[in-house]
Nucleic acid binder design. Structure first.
Lengths: 99, 99
DNA sequence: AGAATATTTCGATTATAATAGAATTATGGA
DNA sequence: TCCATAATTCTATTATAATCGAAATATTCT
């Protein structure tokens, strides 16, 4: 993962609503949830939810696919794992590799 | 980890300089680095570095200990792991646990 | 085509964070 | 005690992000 992508992903997650949304989608698995469902679930206005979903999508943390009238959002596990690996990369390598 | 702590940690990491600082300290291991060394290494003014180190310390991502005139900063691996676990917690549990 | 549903974009307001020079605090040595 | 070194806090400026009502876009059904 590139650093700019990591900053974008972390910025996306560094917000209470978006962290909630992302973690719910992580639990939901690949079936995901529609934007409106998420809006109802968290009691957030549709415009606000849409803004947050866009941030998460732009960061690559979630995917969006249209299904009839709804747009279904789901966690992007590859990107999530890439972010985690980026954070712990070369852990303790300047100290003999012992952590 | 509590959600408020997670948001604080993610906010701390969601900034290019701080992400660089944290990842360097992750590589450095428990010997860590002094504030001034970090300031020189990244070419940042001392006040700016101090501000970033405070953010990372308040989030619990790094520790600070005085050693003579210097203050040595080091990655807090426990908190880092707790943050990662918080992000992936109950992954796919609403979808049969298969990821 | 027209109505209903699902979601996004626009735009204005409000709140929060980054930057860095200057002043301040803390430690150790002559 | 006086000076040098190391780091932080203060303060003002500048930049970025969150919120949500209203309008716009996209899809499906009759």
């Amino acid at each position: 993962m590139k650093k700019s992508n990591a900053v974008k992903s972390l910025t996306a997650l560094a917000q209470e609503s978006r962290l909630d949304i992302f973690r719910l989608l992580v639990r939901k698995g690949k079936t995901g949830m529609a934007a409106g469902e998420l809006s109802d679930y968290f009691g957030l206005p549709k415009a606000t939810m849409s803004f947050h979903l866009k941030e998460l999508t732009n960061a690559g943390l979630i995917t969006a696919k249209r299904e009839s009238r709804s747009i279904i959002y789901a966690a992007n596990y590859d990107n999530m794992n890439a972010l985690i690996n980026f954070l712990v990369e070369n852990c303790c390598s300047d100290n003999g590799g012992k952590c």
